[in-house]
Nucleic acid binder design. Structure first.
Length: 271
DNA sequence: ACGCGGCCCTGGATGC
DNA sequence: TGCATCCAGGGCCGCG
């Protein structure tokens, strides 16, 4: 699913299409997402203008005059403008220019909710999030190092936990650890300060590059305009098990770590 | 109290 | 061709 670069790519594509438009009506399909608002709540956003589209971690936030629409794409969620009906369409937002913004999600791991400004402030899903490597200046090696001191888990799992760092998912975790030369099975609390600094830098680098290239399309990620990302062509280890490392020529290894398939170079990333 | 495994879903790839 | 199995970019919940 979409990690930070994919969500950011969607945000950037979507915002110019819908900013300033008012919502004329909204329709929800019969099959619920993991989170779906009540119909009374949905009714409140009629005639509200869309002022901006923000990203908070891997969430999209549509800022309305008095409410926020909270959207998480889960693994297979996507927003697109109008066009033909498709299987797994679940939300239809009709805008005042006649266009319809549609949410599609095959696996329905996504979330959609309507929140007041006050509810947004107090929302537990959003209040426990860590620093954003792209947006927050307090994300750096020193912060990562101090957070990691008491974390008795594999470093890959540590950087994927949204409570400590947001936006890093299964693809970019492997990529960042490769760039930093850190073995994904290393215990987080055993990171040296130097390693934490390399890792923070690597996370920022890979997320920025992936945003620049429009995200990673493995099977079904699409940008807001429907085009695919390009960064899948630039992945150095993810999905490349049994291929050779671009740096040293060793064979890339893969193995599940805390339940998620992980990829690393046994030569460049030693425990 | 923390860390992990299972689970929520559908569809595509693979194997028999 | 058909069927069974496994796996997928995320996050929540319950268990030990």
């Amino acid at each position: 699913m979409p990690e930070l670069p994919e969500v950011e790519t969607v945000r950037r594509g979507l915002e110019p299409l819908i900013r300033g438009r008012a919502i004329k009506s909204i329709r929800l399909g019969p099959q619920k997402l993991r989170v779906f608002p009540s119909s009374q709540r949905v009714a409140k956003i009629k005639d509200q203008a869309i002022l901006a589209v923000h990203r908070k971690a891997k969430y999209l936030l549509f800022e309305l005059e008095e409410f926020f629409l909270l959207s998480h794409l889960g693994m297979t969620g996507s927003w697109r403008m109008g066009g033909e009906q498709r299987k797994h369409d679940h939300i239809w937002l009709s805008l005042d220019n006649g266009q319809i913004l549609i949410y599609n999600d095959a696996r329905r791991f996504g979330m959609f909710d309507v929140l007041s400004k006050n509810q947004l402030r107090n929302d537990k899903r959003l209040s426990h999030l860590g620093a954003d490597p792209v947006l927050d200046s307090q994300f750096n090696g020193d912060q990562l190092f101090s957070l990691s001191r008491n974390k008795n888990t594999r470093v890959k799992s540590f950087i994927m936990n949204q409570e400590w760092v947001v936006g890093v998912g299964n693809i970019y975790a492997s990529e960042a650890l490769f760039l930093a030369g850190i073995h994904p099975m290393q215990i987080a609390s055993a990171l040296t300060r130097k390693q934490a600094q390399l890792l923070a830098r690597a996370i920022k680098q890979v997320l920025h590059e992936a945003i620049f290239f429009g995200g990673t399309t493995i099977s079904d990620f699409k940008q807001a305009g429907g085009s695919e990302g390009y960064f899948q062509n630039l992945l150095l280890v993810y999905g490349r098990d049994k291929e050779v490392c671009v740096v040293c020529g060793s064979m890339i290894k893969s193995q599940a770590i805390v339940g998620r398939n992980s990829f690393w170079c046994p030569q460049c990333q030693q425990l």
